[in-house]
């Protein structure tokens, strides 16, 4: 049972890291298209849109790499970032839906002809959040048991 859980958590880490690296790639390649997607959420003020669009994909990259780290210390930090981002993405998209905005997610594809995602997008983000939260809980709480000294992670 415990072994099965380990495998599930390993797969969750690999999946999350893959998803984030894939998502970041398109955004780094086309920051202008991603900035437009961010702008269309109508959440950030005008001056912050570009800075956010430039910064976010690199957070995704580093969170993905940290999720793959063998040590629990960076894994916990990466999972915390991943869960935080997914919670924020889900909230942002839910807010857009609630305001009646029919916008593309801007999560993976930045194509101009992308369809608005709707509830499927929301459900997918929520599922990814659950995975990230599970990986975080494992890295964060388990670490305490195995390495009693915080100075020696």
């Amino acid at each position: 049972m415990r072994r099965a859980l380990r495998i599930v958590l390993l797969l969750a880490r690999l999946a999350l890291a893959g998803v984030f690296l894939w998502a970041a790639w398109g955004k780094i390649a086309a920051p202008d298209a991603f900035a437009l997607a961010v702008y269309r959420y109508r959440i950030l003020p005008s001056w912050a849109v570009n800075a956010f669009a430039l910064w976010l994909p690199w957070i995704e990259v580093l969170a993905a790499l940290a999720l793959l780290a063998p040590g629990r210390r960076w894994r916990a930090a990466g999972a915390a970032l991943a869960a935080g981002m997914l919670a924020a993405f889900t909230a942002a998209y839910a807010a857009a839906l609630a305001r009646g905005l029919s916008i593309a997610c801007g999560c993976f594809t930045l194509r101009a002809d992308a369809a608005a995602g709707g509830w499927t997008t929301l459900a997918r983000n929520a599922a990814l959040f659950a995975l990230a939260a599970a990986v975080f809980a494992d890295a964060f709480f388990d670490r305490r048991r195995r390495t009693p000294s915080p100075e020696n992670p």
Binding site: W55, W58, V61, L62, W74, A76, A80, P150
Partner: peptide
């Protein structure tokens, strides 16, 4: 510790 590590990653990303 985790919060500081996450902040380090955020700074590195910037």
């Amino acid at each position: 510790r985790t919060a500081v590590d996450a902040a380090v990653l955020l700074a590195l990303a910037a």
